[in-house]
Design a protein around this nucleic acid. Sequence first.
DNA 1: GTCGGTCGAGAGCGCTGCTCTCGCTTGAGA
DNA 2: TCTCAAGCGAGAGCAGCGCTCTCGACCGAC
Lengths: 241, 241
Amino acid sequence: MCAMLSVVPTARERARAQTTEAILAAARTQLAEVGAAALSLRAVAREVGLVSSAVYRYFPSRDELLTALIIEAYDAVGEAAEAARDAASGASARECWVAVWRGVRAWARAHPAQYALIYGSPVPGYAAPPDTLPAAGRVGVVLGSIASAAHADVDPGDDVVAAVAPDVAEVLHLDPRLAPAAVTAWTQLFGTVGFELFGQYENVVTDRDTYFDHVAGAAASSVGIPADRPGNHDLPRRPAS
Amino acid sequence: MCAMLSVVPTARERARAQTTEAILAAARTQLAEVGAAALSLRAVAREVGLVSSAVYRYFPSRDELLTALIIEAYDAVGEAAEAARDAASGASARECWVAVWRGVRAWARAHPAQYALIYGSPVPGYAAPPDTLPAAGRVGVVLGSIASAAHADVDPGDDVVAAVAPDVAEVLHLDPRLAPAAVTAWTQLFGTVGFELFGQYENVVTDRDTYFDHVAGAAASSVGIPADRPGNHDLPRRPAS
DNA sequence: GTCGGTCGAGAGCGCTGCTCTCGCTTGAGA
DNA sequence: TCTCAAGCGAGAGCAGCGCTCTCGACCGAC
């Protein structure tokens, strides 16, 4: 009766998991190719080799399928940030910070449709379900953990400190006085990446790599992460585009 | 033969202009109600009292209709910025700067769908035509004109200055050394407004007004606009939400 | 007054999301 | 081991979409 309690999955359960994954994979492909708004459930079904109505056994609507892709995307960008941080584990806080920024940007450039899905305009008439909230914070957590090592020599007004939810400082293990700067830096990261991806920097920023590194460095300073070489705001050249 | 050269518009020309405006008005309404991706040309036609095929006499495709709305939106946000600047004409550079930021945010909150249309993810398979480029820069020009009054005591590295297109400093009548900071502030304005509008600040920023003013003030400082009262980064309370 | 160009209506094509029904298969309980 | 409810895929179908084509009606320049 209640097969979900079974430890050993039945053949039917395995088949269901496989089909679900196949649908998600096809949806991921189509998302990258045509974008979120044009993602067609029927086309996904065709790619999987199913008839459209069969897909509804797995996702009750197109929006539910999109929600699954949104969560995947949040996790992916969070993993990219964590991987970049881990790869720079031996480096200074500032190098680590810049590495995470670069990691997020690189992921976004490699997966523009998924980036647009989570940081672009919300899909019409579609409110992001609360399922997405935990996954959405992963990049912020990574940035916060780096910033928490810095000394809080920045000090905004009390009202600004109170304007940020107390949970933020708590989740990020951060001095509450640093929380507004952290939120601003987090905003700036995705604002800059978004502007580059969505074409706003066309005819505005020519050398995107250099400009991005500059913004990352300035943001590091704004959350109290000191420059590696005092008095020098320049950063080591990024490896390659 | 060539009625376009006629100074006095014929009845047919007037009717055409009226119908075009009626279609645009209906499209604007529907855009605000259901969003860009769900904007239906057939629904627009119904609202105007036309059959769908008749709309194609005025706009060759749904994308062309969207383009017209995009240009309208760019103009509207530009006008909002200019109006805010003009309303604060007697004030200090910093007050003027913050007023423009508030004006853009207020417009965005009042017209979220139009904001999403121009600053959200691009519509799928749809490349913004070059028609939109001049209108897109109006807010930047307003911000730049305010910043140009400030002394350029900020000095990024030469490579960063070179990373920004020379046209930017030229169009904004700005010291090229200030251009990167101006671009960053411009990015931050729309990044912050976008994050608020698209729900990223849910459970993160509680007092959006206070936080936004703080960011605006910090951005003013970053482009070299001094605080009105030295040593005090706080700003006059905004009038009302 | 004529006649070419413009306009709106209507039918139609292929696509979409989604629902419903119908059989086949699976697997747990008797 | 047999039974039967539940799960599953296929297919038909509905309403809506963007877009095209054709056909009458009307406007206005000549």
